[in-house]
């Protein structure tokens, strides 16, 4: 959805509890203080390259209580979390912290990109989001280093701790591939 798409929003469809839910999160309390000045979007590096990504609009939708539209928003995952907008906001709104909370709500509603499920599972299984491979084992040896780094890669007991944590928090199930 871009700024130019005209669509009637019925107040009866809005979910005001959504905003309250977001604002409970530490760091997200100032969501309602956004007065739509667009300083965030004007300076956004992502918006320069992908104009459909509009952080001001996402925050406006949050303030209006547009839960479903926001959790399923095609550009919800475009923020690189550079924090430029958060630093510049004249109202002190923590845009990025708020966006991360909305993303968490999406994931916990079962809305997650397949590529993100894959990287989540990779981390849950190996303890690394980017695990070692043969090419880099070779590079390590060539540099006179151990083939495996001193991380969970080398210590199975440590990896088991990671496995146990993701089981306790339910992260392994939360992010598993959908059939």
């Amino acid at each position: 959805m871009s700024d130019t798409d005209m669509k009637v929003i019925k107040t009866s469809d809005l979910d005001l509890a959504f905003r309250e839910e977001i604002m409970k999160e530490h760091g997200a309390e100032k969501l309602s203080m956004c007065f739509n000045c667009t300083g965030c979007t004007a300076g956004c590096t992502m918006a320069e390259h992908e104009p459909n990504y509009n952080i001001r609009q996402l925050l406006r939708m949050a303030n209006l209580g547009m839960r479903e539209e926001l959790l399923n928003h095609p550009y919800l995952w475009n923020c690189t979390t550079c924090y430029k907008c958060q630093e510049r906001c004249p109202q002190g709104v923590h845009n990025v912290d708020i966006l991360l909370k909305i993303r968490t709500m999406a994931v916990h509603s079962g809305i997650m990109l397949d590529k993100h499920r894959k990287v989540a599972q990779l981390m849950a299984n190996t303890g690394h989001a980017v695990p070692i491979n043969d090419d880099n084992k070779e590079k390590r040896k060539k540099l006179g280093m151990g083939e495996l780094p001193e991380t969970v890669h080398k210590y199975p007991d440590a990896l088991e701790e990671v496995h146990k944590i993701v089981r306790i928090t339910g992260f392994d199930k939360l992010t598993e591939a959908q059939s």
Binding site: V107, H116, A129, T151, K154, A158, L174
Partner: peptide, 19 residues
Amino acid sequence: KGASCCPAPGVFRSFDKIT
């Protein structure tokens, strides 16, 4: 010894804050 992924702030914090 035995450290893991940090885990990456933008993705994993997005998915589940407690994890």
